[in-house]
Write a protein that binds this DNA or RNA. Structure first.
Lengths: 117, 117
DNA sequence: CTGTATCCCCGTGGATACTG
DNA sequence: CAGTATCCACGGGGATACAG
């Protein structure tokens, strides 16, 4: 996953973004923070627009980084549940801050748009 | 800038990432946090690998969002300085958290790699 | 020095069909 | 239900040349 050119940036925040790079990863985390555990199909339903292929891929990458845990229940039909690992929990403060900032930013833009009308 | 499909995600963190989407934006912010003000060429030097075209584009987008301020000094040769706006300062806590998390993540990976050797 | 203007590559993600 | 397997489209970003 992009361990290609060894940029070795002095800014470690960049490596965080690297790990979480992927159009839907933070949204996936958001839902897993809201619900301790979700099935594959539940994630699909909660994330309109994502496809099976992409959801699978991003979950696998999050799992690879130790952020998400995948549990397979050997039943028929198969059931697979995803949950945030304790390590993944450490991302919560970041997501919360971004959530707050995003809200404020949207409010700010709405205000601007309103002013010039 | 991607106001295309109106996903209206319930997660506002996503809109934050949207605003800051761009390969080098956080790194640009990082340097502007370290130095109250930097010239275009100074940013170029501090960000190895970026091109003029892309640096310009990302700076313009940050400016558009009110995060970065661009000041042109009408001299010859021209001098342009970039600085974080007060509003942009509100991103600092997020960047700091990501910085810390990134460091810890790298440490963690190094540890793992070391274990299995 | 601080940019534009062109052209182009390639990786991420989307569409669709199929499977244990 | 929870995925793979293929194929493909698109746009963000890189290379290069040029300009005020």
């Amino acid at each position: 996953m992009s361990s290609s050119h060894r940029e070795d940036s002095p800014c470690s925040a960049v490596s965080t973004l690297q790990v979480l790079s992927g159009k839907w990863k933070w949204l996936i985390l958001y839902h897993l923070f809201e619900h301790p555990s979700l099935r594959f199909s539940e994630l699909m339903r909660r994330i309109p627009g994502i496809t099976q292929r992409v959801l699978t891929k991003q979950l696998r990458e999050l799992e690879e980084e130790g952020i998400v845990e995948r549990t397979v229940y050997p039943e028929v039909p198969p059931r697979v549940e995803y949950a945030i690992t304790p390590y993944g929990q450490s991302l919560r403060p970041i997501l919360d801050l971004m959530h707050a900032w995003g809200l404020e930013h949207l409010r700010r833009k709405a205000e601007r748009a309103h002013q010039e009308s």
